[in-house]
């Protein structure tokens, strides 16, 4: 992780999954939508919640809670879809991520971010860019590109194999 990249990205969007605080680099976030309905695409993994209509284009939506081994996101008044731009197979792609509630945009100095410890996280550390600290609370900063690598999204074959 280079120091230069760290110094540039100082604004983060924070959101909650269950009671835990997570954050995404604001430059990756396009917009935040209210979560209304999603159309499930058959024979896809559980964490792929389906597709939504984003002003005329069809955008896949991912349940981060399921992805991180938590329980399925249930719809509440606070549930949001964070529309992010990720790079997938070297091309940028628009994706929606479900969050229980979106908090705020914060600024974090690079020196306030520490690498995630390798043990005790109960979460794949390669998804994590670092741990931020704010008002005695830990914020898990996610590396959104890593979450949606080609391997992670190449579920289709598994799905069809398990179905047959």
């Amino acid at each position: 992780m280079s120091a230069v990249a760290e110094a540039e990205a100082t604004q983060y969007l924070t959101f909650k999954l269950e009671d835990e605080m997570f954050a995404l680099d604001i430059s990756k976030v396009r917009e935040v939508l209210e979560f209304s309905s999603v159309t499930k695409v058959p024979r896809t993994p559980e964490f792929m919640r389906g597709v939504i209509n984003l002003r005329g284009s069809v955008v896949p939506v991912v349940d981060l809670r399921l992805k991180f081994g938590m329980t399925r996101t249930e719809k509440t008044v606070n549930t949001c879809v964070i529309i992010v731009e990720v790079s997938f197979e070297n091309e940028s792609m628009v994706l929606g991520a479900l969050a229980d509630s979106v908090q705020e945009v914060i600024e974090l100095e690079p020196e306030k971010i520490e690498p995630a410890p390798n043990i005790g996280m109960q979460l794949r550390t390669d998804f994590i860019k670092g741990m931020g600290k704010r008002d005695e609370e830990f914020i898990i900063i996610l590396d959104i590109d890593k979450i949606f690598t080609a391997d992670e999204l190449a579920f289709a074959q598994e799905a069809s194999q398990s179905a047959s």
């Binding site: 695409v41 069809v58 999204l153």
Partner: peptide
Amino acid sequence: KTLGRVFKDISG
């Protein structure tokens, strides 16, 4: 509308 590359291998 295309479903995009994420769903390119979905049959049916």
